[in-house]
Amino acid sequence: MREKTNLLGYFYISPYIIGLLAFTLIPMAISLYLSFTDYNLLSSPRWIGGGNFSRMVSDDQFWQSVRVTFYYVFTAVPARLVFALAVAIALKELNFLKGFYRLVFYVPSLIGGSVAVAVIWVQLFSKDGVVNAFLNTLGFNIDFSWIGNPSTAIWTLVLLSAWQFGSAMLIFLAGLQNIPKDYYEAASVDGANAWRRFVRITLPMLSPIILFNVVMQTINGFLAFTPSYIVTEGGPMNSTLLYVLYLFRRAFQFSDMGYASAMAWVMLILISILTALIFSSSRSLVHYEGKGD
């Protein structure tokens, strides 16, 4: 009996294992090897042991990129999730113009990664851009460029990320649809108000989805690349140098593939630890309706 379920289980996940091997594990093994080498892509890799890792410790730009990325994750991710959940709930209650709103809030995620949006974003936040014009009409007197200023540039990226909460919102919406209406009706009959219904029904029922979104958004936050690549190019003065951008730069601009691979493994370990932490703390918070784990 045991063997039968084993075989069956593996049957279903076999495509994944094959693909994993071919397209992920083998490249990952190669990249692990490369992290101990000096490899400039144009000639063969040269073994240098822990050289890349020791260089990382004293590399200012590396630590700068770590700082910037942590700041980014811990501001952009909560912002995104809060907006996504709030708007998803609002939309569920709404019946008027629902389709319109769903589309409107989702469009930013659709176009977010494009060059055109990046260019627009730069213009919006530049010295004589729309944002300043708007703030000036409100009475503030803003005389600098948000995007050109090292202390404010990162906020433009955080805003860009928060603007794209649509994808998380969609996932929350789908999850919200899954909550049976009779639970709410039963609760209302029992006298629960909106807030209690939210806390006692919505949140727990939604908790697997919330967990999913938290994990995914956090990971995506750490791996964010395109915004800083296109919009700010890591500047000004490396104030928006996200980790993966620095990695990419080292790999391709400076032909330093070995070091970049080392950086990738450091990030991998970091995210694993963080995710493990999130999962273990979720055990008490997350409620599974079906066959749980």
Binding site: T24, I26, P27, M28, I30, S31, L34, L41, I219, F222, L223, F225, V244, L247, F248, A251, M257, A260, S261, M263, A264, M267, L268, I271, S272, T275
Partner: peptide
């Protein structure tokens, strides 16, 4: 959690 950019070359 693996940055795509790194297994890109392999």
């Amino acid at each position: 959690m693996l940055p795509q950019e790194v297994i890109m070359v392999p």
